[in-house]
Amino acid sequence: MASHKSREPTLTEQARRAQLIDVTTRVIAEHGYAGASLSRIAGAAGITKAAVLYHFRSKDAVVRAAYEHALADLVDHVGGAVEAAGVEEAPAAYVRSMVEYLRDHPHHTRVVVEALSDDGGERHPRERWGPLADLMRAARRARGLRTDLDLRTAALVVGGGIDAIIAEHLDHPDYDPVAAAELLVSMLHRVLLSEHG
């Protein structure tokens, strides 16, 4: 069983791993981390637990792969939107694209939320607020505004707003996260990117 780990996976193995990541994402979204047993993942994929373990050494490994896949897709989406927006509008693009992605990918959202609440403190807080604070600093600099504000707290507040919007949408699907994101962007522009900020 260990010999296949030292070589490049075949196309069939790559496809099976991708399928298992997809299935695991769905299982976590529907049953939470605790309910995402190897048996449930294997059953949803239509294979045996041994077949899952052929591709991933443990439940934690396949769950970690699902989380990393969801996070990578989110980062790619938000990064593309931020880059397309330009420096001055990057913070607004960050908020809009984050909410848009999480609204459109509820299974990925559940995986990310589950992983963040069950990570045992592995993620450093700056990984969450740092990129947005950097975007705010660059936007203020591009507008010729002061950059010595407490952008850490500003990013935490905006990030918390994003989290709250998504949580509300997950709990109440009729809640409009796009309208909420626009309100958050409006507040961001008025307070954080104004001459007096």
Rank of each mutant, 00 (worst) to 15 (best):
M1W: 02
S3M: 09
K5V: 14
R7K: 13
E8I: 10
E8S: 13
P9A: 11
T10Q: 06
L11P: 03
E13D: 15
A15H: 13
R16W: 07
R16K: 14
Q19H: 06
Q19T: 05
L20Q: 00
I21P: 00
D22N: 08
D22A: 10
T24I: 02
T24S: 05
I28F: 01
E30W: 00
G32A: 04
Y33L: 14
A34G: 08
S37R: 11
S39M: 09
S39G: 14
I41Q: 10
I41S: 08
A42I: 12
A44V: 02
G46L: 10
I47E: 06
K49R: 15
A50E: 12
V52Y: 07
V52D: 02
H55C: 10
S58A: 14
S58L: 10
V63W: 03
R64D: 14
Y67S: 08
A70K: 07
A70D: 10
L71R: 14
A72E: 13
A72F: 03
A72V: 04
D73N: 12
D76H: 07
D76P: 00
V78G: 02
V78E: 05
G79A: 03
V82E: 04
A85C: 04
G86P: 13
V87T: 15
E89R: 15
A90M: 08
A93K: 01
R96S: 06
M98H: 14
V99K: 07
P106S: 12
P106E: 11
V111L: 09
V111A: 07
E114Y: 01
E114R: 02
S117C: 00
S117M: 12
D119Q: 06
G121P: 10
G121K: 13
R126P: 00
E127C: 01
P131T: 03
P131E: 07
P131C: 04
L132G: 01
L132W: 03
L135S: 03
L135R: 03
M136P: 03
R141A: 15
R143L: 15
R143Y: 04
T147L: 02
T147N: 03
T147G: 13
D148E: 09
L149H: 09
D150E: 07
R152Y: 05
V157F: 05
V157G: 01
G159R: 02
G159I: 01
G160F: 09
D163V: 02
I165K: 09
L170R: 08
Y175V: 12
Y175C: 11
P177H: 06
V178P: 06
A179H: 12
A181N: 10
E182S: 11
E182D: 15
L183T: 15
V185A: 11
M187A: 15
M187K: 04
M187V: 11
L188R: 02
L188F: 07
L188G: 06
L193A: 06
H196L: 10
